[in-house]
C-alpha cells in the first residue's frame, strides 16, 4: 500500500534531500559520516559508566552507537540546523510574491491535494491545511467544489492579533507559523474569517516517530502539541523551485501557482505556464470575501464551463 503512494514517498524523500542540501553544514564531518543523524538525547540510554558511547537513532530508524563526544557535536549541529531553518524561514525569499489561482471549473473533489498536504505536514485525517468544500452561494445558484487553503492575506487579521510574533508574514507574502514560539492562545483562529487555521488539540500524529526531526518552520514539521498549524504555501518546496504539495498532486489542473513579480503562474497538473494577469482577466478571477479587506493572495476562477459534474450530480451521471 505504501509503495503505491508516490505522494507520501516523494514528500519524505524531498525533505531528506533538502536537509542534505543545506550548504552551510556541508563542511561538518560528523554530519556527513552519520548521514544526518537525529539525536534522541532525552530518551536514549546513556548507561555506559564512562559515558563514552551513546545510542542514537538515525534518520532511517536504526539505532547506532556513537562516542558521546561526537554526540555533543551532533546536538550542536542540530541546533544549528534549526537556527538556520528559523532564520531563513522567517526571512522568506527576496523578490518573490507568491500567488495561487484555483480554477473552480476543474475541481471534481478528488481530494488528492488534501492527501498530499496531510502527508507532508504530518496531519491527522481531520486536520486540514487545505479542504475542499461543497459551496452553494444561494438558493438557486449551482453548487460547486471549492478547495480552500490559507489565503495568505496581505492584510492578515490573524497576524495582527498574535501576541508573540509566532505567526508572521514574510517578505514574499507567505504567512507562516512558528510552532516553537506559539503559546496556543488561539486568537489567530478566532481572527481568521476563512477558518483556515487548525490547532493540535492532542499529541500530533506519529509524534513519537518524528520527535528527533529538527523543526522546520517552513513545513510546520514536526507538529507540536498545543500550537497552531495551517497551510504554508509549501514554503519549503518553493525554495527548491518546486510547486506546492497540493498544486503538484492535483490530477485535474485546478491549481496555478507562481510569482506575481514575474506575472507567471504554472499549472500544477499540466505544468503549463501562463500570465497571471491574463488568466485573471480572461476568466473573471476574484478573491473570496474580498469585502473584508483582507487582501487574499489566492484567486479563484469561477466554476464556468465545468468539465466535471457539479456536487450532487455524480450519482446521476454514473448511471446514465
Amino acid at each position: 500500500m505504501e509503495e503505491n503512494n508516490p505522494i507520501i514517498e516523494s514528500g519524505d524523500e524531498g525533505r531528506r534531500n533538502f536537509l542534505k542540501k543545506l550548504g552551510i553544514f556541508a563542511g561538518v564531518g560528523v554530519a556527513a559520516a552519520a548521514g544526518a543523524v537525529y539525536v534522541a538525547s532525552d530518551y536514549e540510554e546513556k548507561k555506559n559508566p564512562e559515558g563514552k558511547k551513546v545510542r542514537v537513532l538515525t534518520a532511517d530508524g536504526q539505532l547506532v552507537e556513537v562516542p558521546e563526544s561526537e554526540l555533543q557535536k551532533i546536538e550542536q549541529e542540530e541546533l544549528d540546523i534549526e537556527d538556520e531553518l528559523q532564520r531563513r524561514g522567517r526571512e522568506g525569499i527576496a523578490g518573490k510574491s507568491w500567488v495561487m489561482v484555483i480554477d473552480l471549473a476543474k475541481c471534481r473533489n478528488a481530494r488528492m491535494c488534501i492527501a498530499a498536504c496531510q502527508a507532508a505536514h504530518q496531519l491527522r485525517p481531520e486536520q486540514y491545511h487545505i479542504n475542499t468544500l461543497v459551496m452553494k452561494d444561494s438558493e438557486h445558484s449551482a453548487p460547486y467544489y471549492m478547495p480552500k487553503p490559507c489565503y495568505h492575506c496581505d492584510n492578515p487579521p490573524c497576524v495582527k492579533v498574535c501576541p508573540v510574533n509566532a505567526t508572521f508574514k514574510r517578505q514574499d507574502g507567505i504567512v507562516l507559523i512558528d510552532n516553537l514560539r506559539c503559546i496556543g492562545c488561539r486568537f489567530c483562529v478566532a481572527a481568521c474569517p476563512y477558518s483556515a487555521r487548525i490547532f493540535n488539540w492532542f499529541e500530533p500524529r506519529d509524534s513519537e516517530k518524528y520527535k528527533d526531526q529538527p523543526y522546520d518552520v517552513e513545513l510546520n514539521v514536526p507538529q507540536k502539541k498545543g500550537t497552531i498549524s495551517k497551510c504554508l504555501f509549501s514554503a519549503d518546496r518553493l525554495r527548491k523551485g518546486e510547486l506546492p504539495y497540493c498544486v503538484s498532486s492535483c490530477p485535474n489542473g485546478v491549481y496555478w501557482f507562481g510569482d506575481m513579480n514575474e506575472d507567471v503562474v504554472v499549472n500544477g497538473t499540466t505544468k503549463e505556464a501562463a500570465r497571471f494577469s491574463q488568466l485573471i482577466k480572461d476568466n473573471g478571477g476574484y478573491t473570496y470575501l474580498e469585502e473584508l479587506g483582507t487582501k487574499p493572495r489566492v484567486y479563484y476562477l469561477p466554476p464556468k464551463n465545468r468539465i466535471f459534474p457539479a456536487p450532487g450530480e455524480e450519482q446521476v451521471s454514473s448511471h446514465s
Binding site: C162, P163, V164, A166, R181, C182, I183, C185, G226
Partner: peptide, 28 residues
C-alpha cells in the same frame, strides 16, 4: 487565561516577544 493556553509553559514569551499590536498585550 493560562488555563486556556495550549502552551502555558511559554507564558513568559508574552514579555520576551510581546507584540504591542495584539489586544492580548493590552489586556495583560
Amino acid at each position: 487565561i493560562i488555563i486556556d493556553m495550549g502552551r502555558p509553559d511559554r507564558f513568559p514569551y508574552l514579555f520576551l516577544h510581546g507584540r504591542l499590536q495584539s489586544p492580548i498585550l493590552w489586556d495583560v
